[in-house]
């Protein structure tokens, strides 16, 4: 393994271990509020927003396991997310290797 890879993986492990730090604030991000926020702030939920088709059925909504401990859910989300990122690059690597060997 290259030296760069070792350093990058060390940073990765440290960040996964430290990820619950991200839970210290429960303030929402600007412009990412739940529809209820607009009801409180404006007295109504914008119509197009309210009637927008439901496109998402996340398995780990908001980086949590519904009903489980918050920190545990965050840890699982960090590991699952990082693993999926690697999986995507692994698949792309396979596609690229195939194209190279064909040409």
């Amino acid at each position: 393994m290259s030296k760069k890879m070792k350093v990058a993986l060390t940073v990765l492990v440290i960040m996964i271990l430290a990820v619950p730090v991200g839970l210290l604030t429960d303030a929402p991000a600007f412009g990412e509020w739940d529809p209820d926020y607009y009801l409180k702030k404006l007295g109504f939920i914008p119509k197009g927003m309210q009637h927008f088709p439901q496109l998402q059925h996340p398995i780990l909504p908001d980086y949590s396991i519904p009903g489980a401990n918050e920190v545990l859910g965050y840890y699982v989300s960090a590991v699952v997310g990082a693993a999926l990122v690697f999986l995507i690059w692994f698949i792309i690597g396979k596609i690229i290797a195939k194209k190279h060997s064909n040409s």
């Binding site: 890879m5 990058a8 993986l9 990765l12 990820v19 839970l23 997310g81 990122v85 690697f86 690059w89």
Partner: peptide, 17 residues
Amino acid sequence: PLLGTLSALSFLIMMFN
């Protein structure tokens, strides 16, 4: 491998609110 790792770091850094 390095690209995969740095992409995973991007995912993780976005969890540090």
